[in-house]
Every structure is written in C-alpha cells, then in structure tokens.
Design a protein around this nucleic acid. Structure first.
Lengths: 202, 202, 202, 202
DNA sequence: ACCTAAGCGAGACGGTACGTCTGGTCTTGGC
DNA sequence: GCCAAGACCAGACGTACCGTCTCGCTTAGGT
C-alpha cells in the first residue's frame, strides 16, 4: 500500500476567502447578479480555481451559505418540548427576515432547476433541521404534549410548511405573531365544536 | 383625443401559437433549457414578436401556464365544506404530480428572482386559489365545522403550506395518503393527552 | 418568385472598422499577441459580431491584410517583360521589408497549422500573384527573352522561392542588391564554362 | 575543476523519453494539438520537469526533431559536385514528403513567432545544411562545373528556395521530377534565344 | 382605392457570462 | 536536490442568450 502520490494540496485560505467573498457578494447584489467571474475577480482568484472546486455558481453559494449557518444547536431549551419548537420556529422566522431568508429563497429556488443542488440543499439544510425537529417532536410525544398516533415528519411539515410558504409566496410578513398563530392553531387543530364526529371518517 | 390612425392589429393566432409552443417546450426540455430564441424558432416567429408582447421568458411561460390551467371550478362539491377542502387538496396534489407540478415549481422558483413575475404569480395563481379557499373555510366556520376564532388565511397556510413544501423540498411523494394525513392531523390538532379523549374515541 | 426574406443587413462600416483595427493591432503588437477579444475591444465591437463574420483570428487578419494590399497592378511597365519581372521582385522585396513582410510571415506561418487559412492564403495572395507572374513570363517567352522549353511556373518558383526563403529563414537582408543578384544569376544559369556537356543528362 | 556539489544529476533517460514522446505525439496529432501538458502526461513526467529543461513547447519539439535527423552525411557521393547537389535536393524533397516535412513546416512556422526558436532553427537546421551545401558548391566552382563569378550562398538560395516554397505554399508536389526540373533549369538559366543554341544541342 | 401606422420575419448588434483550455510558475512531500 | 503530482494565476477561447435595433414586406383600418 503506497502513500498518496504527492501533489500540491489545496490552499485552505483560498477556500475561506472565496466563500466569504461569495457570501458578501450574494448579499450585496443578489444571487442572480453574482457570476463566477465576479467572485473570482473580487476574491483575487482565477476562475479555474473556482471551477476546480465547485461545479457551478450555485454550489459555491451553497457552500458559502452552509459554512455560515452551520447546523448547530438549533432548538433552544425551554420549559417543554413544544415550547422549544415554538421558539425554534420564531428563530427561523427571524433569520428568514434577515440575510438568511434571501439566501434560502435563492438556493431553494435554484435547486428547482439543479438536481445536484437540490440534493445538497436537502442534505445540508433541510434534513439536519428536520432530524433535530423530529427528535424534539418525539420527545414531545413521549411527554404527552403531542398525540401518540402522530407521524413526527407530518408535524414538521404542518408547522414549517407555512413558514416556507410565506417566505416564497410573499403573502405576508414572517412575524413572530404569525408564527405563534400558526403554532397555536396547528396544536389546537382547525376543527370546530363538534368536530369529533366529523373529522374521523370511518 | 385623436382616433387611432390605423395600423395593423396583433395577430391573435400568433399569440396562441406562441403560448402553445412555449408550454410544449417547457414540458419537453424544462424551464431552464428553454430560451426565447428557441421559442421563437420553434413557433416560427421572430424574437421581436415575442418581446413586443412579453418582457421576458418567465412572463411568456407564466402566460402559457395560466392560459392552460385557468382558475376555474376548483373546489368540488362535497358533503361538507371541510370535505370539499380535502378533495381540493387531493386534486392539487394530483396536478402537482403531473405537468403542472413542474411548471409551478419552475415559476415559483423563478419568481424568487423576478419581482414582477412574483407579482404575476401571486395575482394569477396564488391569490385566486387562496380566495376560493378562504371562502370555503368561511363557509366551514359558518357551518361549525371549523372553530369560529380562526383566521381563514392561516387555515390555508397550514393546509397548503405542507403541499408546496413537499413539492419543492422533495422530502416525499405528494400522494393522496400524504394529503389525507396532513388534512386529518391539521384538523385534529397536534396536541396530546388532555385532548386525545375528545378527538377520536375508539 | 418571392424576394429574399429580409433581415437586417450587415453593417459595412463595422466591417471596415474591424479590419482596420485588426491591421493596426497586428502591426503594433504582433500576430500572436492579438486576440479576438482585443480586436473587439479596440474596435468597440462585441466578440459575437466578429465571430459572426469570421471563424477565428487568422481569418480576420487575412481579410485585414488582403483588404489592404489588394491584388492590383503588380507588374510595373518596363522596357521588357524580364525587366518588368525584376522590378516586381524588387517591389515585393521592398514591401516585405516593411509592414507587409511581417504580415506575410505571420499569415504564411499560421497557415501551416490551419488548412482553411492555407487555402485562403493561396487563393487570395499566392495564386493571384503567380498568375500575373506567369502571364509576364509567357510574354517573355514569346518575346524570346526566356527559353521556349520552360515551364513558367518553375520560373516563378526559382525567382520568388529565394525571396520567401530569406523572408522566413532570416539568412540575410531582402535588399535590392540581393534581388538583383538572384535575378541575374537565375537568368544566366548557375552552370560553368563547359556546362553544356554536363547539365543535360541523357 | 570543482566536483559537483552534491545534488541529484539530471536523468538522461528522462531526457530521451521526453524527446521520443514528443516526437511521436507531434507526428500523431500535429504540432498545434500537442501541449506541454500532453507531453508530460504521455511521458509520465511532470510539467515542471519539462519546463526545467526547455523554455517552451517549440524548444522541446525542436530538440526532439534535431535529435532525430542529426546533421549527418547529407551530400551523397556522386560523379560530380553538381550531381551530388541534385541528389541531395532529391533526398531533402523525399524527406519533406514524409514526417520530416511536417516537422520542418511546423518549426519554421512557429519560428516566425518566436525569435529564440528562429535562432535555434537557423543554427541547428538551416546553417549546417547551408554550410555543407556551400562547400559542395565551392567544389563545383573549383571543378568548373559552376561559374566562378558566383556567390555560393546565392546558389543555395536559388536551388533550395523553391523547395521550401512548395513545402509551405502547397502549390504542388515535391516530386523528384519537380526537383530535377528546378535543378536543370537553374543550371541552364532562364534566359532565351541567344543562349539556347549553346544549351542543349539536339 | 388609397394611405398609413403597425405588425411581422429575419437576423445583426452590444453585452455578458459561461465553462474549458493552455501556458508557465510554484509548492509539497517522497526518494 | 530532483522528481511526480498537481494547485495556482492569467487570460483567451468559442458559444449561448439576452433584449434592442433595423430592414423591407405585408396587412388592416380610416378616409
């Protein structure tokens, strides 16, 4: 078994510089207006260096983004699991109101045209968050805060679907009030007075 | 006010031919791969003719799409208002599984980069459906099928958010089963024990 | 029978501007250092406009060159046909000492790597001159100034071959004295005193 | 004389391997299509190793070429000095019809853009051959086969100029017949009537 | 029956970015 | 200290679309 055959290693400083530049550029002028050429020029790097490391602009931006946001401790401690979820929803909405919102919108949009990016977005943004969320939901179920007969993944969809929906549709602000309303309503259910008789078709 | 001094009127056949060609092309090769040039060439029309009528590709595709789907009779008759909503959710999921899904994904994605398209998408796709949906929700409330203290718009977000979420995230299939699960769970609420006894007695 | 189907005609001013710019650039910085990009930038023209009209840099330079030199009245009037040839050889040598020399060297060199350019060079530079030269040689033969049993094409090769040779090899200056020497010697023949007996192998 | 101060000596095997690879590659795909990278890759050598030994591609090819052809025994023995020249012209034409022709064309062409290569080509190809040729011409003059009042260098130009001319212009094949015609005509001179009676009596 | 404004096809144009390629230099770690 | 490997900067390549424009031709209305 012979050792690796040599060759100059990639320059990690460059990596960081490119991602930083990319992040800044995207926020300044928007995803569409950023080009690989502008990233290269701004970062003082040749285009080839970028294409050696990423297949296209979207991949660079994806990296620049996930480098930033990480996948860290997302669910704040709270009195209960459900309360932790509510706070996390608020935190996500808040971040969507800022720079992250623009990036998530752009990346999620671009992913609709680029299967590889879609995969990356799912693996590096969506799924880590879903997994954390599902764990908290399971805890909530264990604590009896949520029904036992529930699929945790559905809970995530019901609670977070509306947030992404507003982010993209622009039907209204992603305010804390909105988040709280959605949360409360989803917890209580939409059904009316005598709902028991109706919402359980045989 | 002077009268129009003559001039040749727009050719309506062309309009239809262009939209038809556009629709077909987008389905064949995808939104990204379609260019105004390819539409013009395929439709046997000059680029100028297209740019005389639409500001850019997205607008043409938007027209081609809404021309097709209309905003017609969306909520099927059913035993109850809530049941009508459920059936409509199923219908939307079904259409999202087909060609419409690809188009809605592409248009919604593109709209993230194009405020004008975003406006058009909202006005011609999102809002008509929301309005119909809200009306049905209001009817449901009147009938006591849904709580009186609810914002109908939130109901729409909670029920449809998850559908768009899956459409774009690709976290799972938009099956009827999924739709039913989301619907039932949203109606019942996510909350646990203390309400479980009322929800679905064995 | 309908007329040509329209379309915007090429802008002739642009054509001239591009060729002029190209010519100037090549003389300033040399063939190799000129790029299509620099031509476009200097001429205030987009790259696409150049590529719409020529397949590559060499073709532009070829055009720029032949546009300049034309294929005009090359053989000056003189007392005799042979004298006309000598004067033309001097004229060519003189032009090779100037800008044309650099261009002919570059184009002939580039043509060694580009069959299409080679064809163009032959058709637009070499052959027109050869044809004129051959006609004058034929006149010389008619006038008894040159042997009757001679292939005029060989005469051109013998007289002009050395000029191109010096142009490219750099073995010496293309002076009038050199041209005259080559001309006189070629006319008289290389053979010595008793050459008749030797240079006609049976 | 100081001893070598340590350090690893250059690997001569590598040198030969690189030149061999280069030669083969150039013949296979042509001078233009060969890059230093392709030579390095094919020879299993790093680019740096090549750039450590030669300044650029042309220099490598130049070496690969002269390594092959040498400057060896060029003028065959013959009955007379002039006949030796004729046979050498044939030999050169034959070699130009083969692989060497392609290489000489490419190198001479490239030399038009690269003064250093031009110098090398002159010193290692052109001048050795010219010197040998001039010596033979001087011998021919001593033997009375050529005029005494002649510059041997001009003889070389007149006889070999046409061969290079055809090699590059592509105005016709470099056949033995062509060579013989040029040789005979140059020996006899192009001039007409008054000398015709002396030249080749029937 | 004109007349005239506009529609139309064709396609040239200035721009801009793409992703690829090569040239020549430099760096790392093994031998 | 040479080597293979290969990262790096620089910058041209030729292509593809964009959205605008100009050119002549055609075609309906208004008079």
């Amino acid at each position: 078994m012979r050792s690796a055959p040599g060759g100059r290693p990639r320059d990690e400083k460059l990596h960081r510089a490119i991602l930083q530049t990319t992040y800044d550029l995207v926020l300044q002028v928007g995803f569409r207006a950023v080009s690989v050429e502008s990233i290269a020029a701004t970062a003082g790097v040749s285009k080839a260096t970028i294409y050696r490391r990423w297949p296209n602009k979207a991949a660079v931006v994806m990296d620049a983004f996930t480098d930033r946001v990480g996948s860290g401790s997302l669910f704040p401690k709270a009195q209960s699991a459900t309360e932790s979820i509510r706070l996390q929803m608020r935190a996500m909405a808040r971040s969507f109101r800022g720079d992250d919102g623009a990036l998530v919108r752009a990346l999620l949009a671009e992913a609709q045209f680029d299967p590889e990016l879609a995969r990356a977005f799912r693996e590096r943004w969506t799924m880590p968050r879903r997994k954390l969320g599902i764990a908290v939901v399971e805890e909530a179920i264990r604590q009896g805060e949520m029904s036992a007969d529930i699929d945790p993944a559905d809970v995530i969809d019901i609670l977070y679907g509306p947030i992404y929906y507003r982010l993209q549709m622009g039907t209204g602000a992603l305010s804390n009030a909105y988040v709280d309303r959605i949360f409360r309503r989803a917890m209580k259910g939409l059904g009316g007075k005598d709902r028991a008789s109706r919402d359980c078709p045989p």
